[in-house]
C-alpha cells in the first residue's frame, strides 16, 4: 500500500454524501469500485442509481447517453480517478455536446483502491479538473475542503451545461455497503423507476 501519499484530507464516507446531497434530485450512474460503494451506501436500494462493477472507463459515456435520453432529468455520474483516466476522452465528447442535464463528480483518492491502493496518476501530478477544463467543460470545481462543498453541490444541480466536480479525498476506505451486482436486475429496476417500464 502507498497510503502515505494523499491527494486530499477529506474522508469520502462524509464528503461524498455532503457533496451529493439529496440523490432524489438526480438519476445516477456510477463508475466501478469505490464510487459505486459510496453511492450505494447513500442510496440504500433506491432505484434511481445504476452501478457499474466493471466496464471500466464507461461511466461518463453511459451518463451522456442517459442524459440525451432523459433531457428533463438531471443525470449525475459519480466515478473515480482511475476509472476516468481510462477513458478521459469521454470528457471531450460530453463537453462538445454539452447537455444541460449532465453533472459529473470524480471522487479522487489518487489511488487504485480496488486493486491494492497502487498510486494513480493524480497522485503523481495529473490534475483531472484541468483535464476537464481542457476537454471544454465550462463549469469545473475542485473541492478539497468542507467550505467548498455547498457551492459545488449547487453547481451540480444548477449548471446549464456539463458540470464537473473533482472531490479530493484521503485514502480512507469506501463504505462496506453490499450492493447488487446483478446488472440485469438493476437495469430493470432503474427503467421501471425512470420510465415506468422494464
Amino acid at each position: 500500500m502507498s497510503k502515505e501519499h494523499e491527494v486530499g484530507s477529506l474522508d469520502r464516507a462524509d464528503a461524498v454524501p455532503m457533496l451529493l446531497g439529496d440523490l432524489d434530485d438526480f438519476i445516477v450512474v456510477t463508475g466501478l469500485a469505490g464510487p459505486a460503494k459510496d453511492v450505494a451506501n447513500i442510496a440504500r436500494g433506491k432505484p434511481n442509481c445504476y452501478y457499474l462493477a466493471g466496464a471500466m472507463g464507461g461511466a461518463v459515456s453511459m451518463g451522456l447517453g442517459l442524459a440525451l435520453a432523459q433531457p428533463k432529468k438531471k443525470v449525475l455520474v459519480v466515478t473515480g480517478d482511475g476509472e476516468l483516466l481510462m477513458n478521459v476522452g469521454a470528457l471531450a465528447t460530453a463537453a462538445v455536446r454539452n447537455p444541460a442535464n449532465l453533472a459529473i463528480v470524480c471522487v479522487d483518492n489518487g489511488h487504485y483502491g480496488e486493486t491494492g491502493y497502487q498510486l494513480s496518476h493524480t497522485t503523481l501530478g495529473t490534475d483531472l479538473s484541468v483535464m476537464a477544463s481542457g476537454a471544454g467543460i465550462g463549469t469545473v470545481r475542485s473541492v478539497s475542503e468542507e467550505s467548498e462543498m455547498a457551492e459545488a453541490s449547487r453547481v451540480l444541480r444548477d449548471s446549464n451545461g456539463v458540470s464537473f466536480v473533482l472531490l479530493r479525498v484521503s485514502t480512507a476506505e469506501p463504505p462496506k455497503f453490499r450492493r447488487s451486482l446483478d446488472a440485469v436486475a438493476n437495469k430493470i429496476r432503474f427503467r421501471e423507476a425512470v420510465l415506468g417500464e422494464a
Binding site: L64, R191, L195
Partner: peptide, 8 residues
C-alpha cells in the same frame, strides 16, 4: 447502454 436506461 445509458440511452437504453433512459428509453432511447
Amino acid at each position: 447502454a445509458g440511452a437504453h436506461l433512459g428509453g432511447r
